[in-house]
């Protein structure tokens, strides 16, 4: 509710406004509670049980056993490591690259700017499965364009098994993730750059700033809220990288991530008939990491 001096509005009026406010919220609130809050609570509760596909209702309460077991599970630790590699590599590169591209294109005239925005945004709006399948063809061991080009130019002698070789697979996935992640940041940065108060830029120019100083000391701080948003969404996206792995490697060749391992544990691990409790414990840990990292980003951005 907007801040109102208490005396300005009678109590009954305030109550009526509050009630109608909540009524407007109700439809989305129902969905939010039903499909977000309740599953989250079930997830947390489940993570403390040994529930699996065959369990009727809740499983047996096992305390923190799932969490303790996780730290002894080599597959999980490897998935965690891979996940962090993806986050640490992709977040800064996505951020820096999109900033660079947007700085280069934001001053272009309308049509050209729209064309660039369209090109970079296309992978975002195209179905991720379609994009991934195209990449899969390009990476193909025998018929892929990468091997073809590299071999024709003499850079390699033997075909590289891009997605089957653990030396390359994770980086191949990071590359695809990168191309599908830069679209939104570019669009956001272009508008943020366009919104920087031009008189501040002029003031800095008159004050004696070089173009770089104008950017770094005036524009960049102005774009901090956008940067923060981009950092957080890219971080979350990278942590939750799943479809790519599922479609390209199914977690093989050293590309297992926490997100994929959760899915695998819950729905694929046939000998345990889907270990829900264990998978949920991973979900909780992933959520904690995302929360911590986002909080850290907020804090750093605030200090700036």
């Amino acid at each position: 509710m907007a801040k109102q001096p208490k005396s300005a509005m009678s109590r009954a009026l305030v109550r009526r406004e509050t009630i109608s406010g909540y009524l407007f919220l109700l439809p989305s609130l129902i969905f939010f509670v039903g499909f977000v809050i309740i599953p989250m609570v079930i997830c947390i509760v489940n993570s403390l049980t040994d529930a699996n596909m065959n369990t009727q209702g809740l499983g047996n309460f096992v305390g923190l056993k799932n969490f303790i077991d996780l730290w002894k599970d080599d597959t999980f630790l490897e998935a965690l490591k891979n996940t962090f590699v993806i986050v640490i590599v992709s977040v800064p590169t996505v951020c820096a690259f999109s900033l660079w591209v947007s700085s280069a294109i934001y001053k272009l005239n309308g049509k050209l700017l729209s064309a660039f925005r369209c090109i970079f945004y296309l992978p975002v709006v195209t179905g991720s499965v379609a994009v991934t399948v195209v990449w899969k063809w390009m990476y193909d061991n025998y018929t892929g364009v990468f091997n073809y080009v590299l071999k024709s130019t003499g850079l390699i002698e033997k075909n590289i098994n891009w997605l089957g070789d653990s030396k390359y697979a994770l980086w191949c996935i990071i590359l695809i993730l990168f191309t599908t992640s830069v679209g939104q940041p570019i669009v956001l940065y272009v508008s943020a750059l366009g919104n920087v108060d031009q008189s501040l830029v002029e003031a800095a120019q008159v004050d004696g700033a070089t173009n770089f100083q104008v950017f770094w000391k005036v524009k960049w701080p102005q774009m901090m809220p956008t940067t923060l948003y981009i950092l957080v969404i890219t971080t979350i996206n990278s942590f939750q990288c799943f479809a790519l792995i599922q479609l390209l490697t199914s977690g093989g060749s050293g590309t297992n991530t926490v997100m994929y391992y959760i899915y695998y544990t819950a729905f694929k691990l046939t000998e345990k008939a889907g270990h829900f409790g264990y998978a949920n414990a991973m979900g909780v840990i992933l959520a904690i990491f995302i929360g911590l990292l986002s909080a850290l980003q907020f804090k750093l951005a605030k200090e700036k």
Partner: peptide, 10 residues
């Protein structure tokens, strides 16, 4: 040095 109408303070 220039003083702007809208102050243009950082």
């Amino acid at each position: 040095a220039m003083v702007f109408q809208n102050y243009a303070l950082y």
